Simulated assay, not measured.
Amino acid sequence: MPGSPTMRRATTDDVPALAELFLAVRAENAPRIPPIAHPAATVRPFLAHVVATDTVWVAEDEHGLVGFLALGAGGEVEHLYLRAVATGRGTGARLLDLAREARPSGLALWTFAANTGARRFYAREGFVEVGGTDGDNEEGVPDVRMEWRPHRLSAGGSRR
Rank of each mutant, 00 (worst) to 15 (best):
E101N: 12
V51H: 01
E62H: 15
T91P: 06
F68N: 01
D143H: 07
Y81T: 00
T116R: 15
I36Y: 13
F22V: 07
L18G: 09
D134C: 03
E28S: 12
V43W: 03
T133N: 15
R8E: 04
V58D: 01
G140P: 08
V58R: 01
W110V: 12
V85F: 03
R32N: 15
T42V: 12
G106R: 02
T116D: 14
L21A: 01
G90N: 02
V66D: 06
A48K: 05
Y122V: 07
E62F: 09
T91M: 10
E125L: 05
F46M: 15
T87P: 01
A99N: 05
L71Q: 00
R120F: 10
G64C: 07
E78V: 10
E28Y: 08
D61R: 13
N115Y: 11
I36N: 13
H49K: 15
E60P: 00
H49Y: 13
S105T: 15
V130R: 03
E125F: 07
V50Y: 00
H79A: 14
Y81D: 08
N29V: 04
P34Y: 04
L69D: 00
T42A: 13
E60H: 12
R120Y: 10
A19Q: 06
R8S: 08
A27C: 07
R103C: 10
W110Q: 15
E101F: 11
R26F: 02
V43R: 04
A73M: 11
E125Y: 07
V85P: 09
A40C: 10
A84S: 13
A118I: 02
E129L: 04
L107V: 09
P104D: 00
G132C: 07
I36L: 14
S105P: 07
L21N: 03
W57M: 03
G64A: 04
E62A: 15
V15A: 08
R103L: 03
G88A: 03
G74D: 15
V130T: 15
R9H: 13
L71N: 04
L82A: 01
A10N: 01
G126V: 04
G67D: 08
G72S: 05
V130M: 08
A52M: 11
E129G: 11
L18Y: 09
A86S: 04
N29E: 13
V77H: 02
P34E: 01
V128L: 14
V25E: 11
G131H: 00
A118V: 00
N115R: 06
G106A: 05
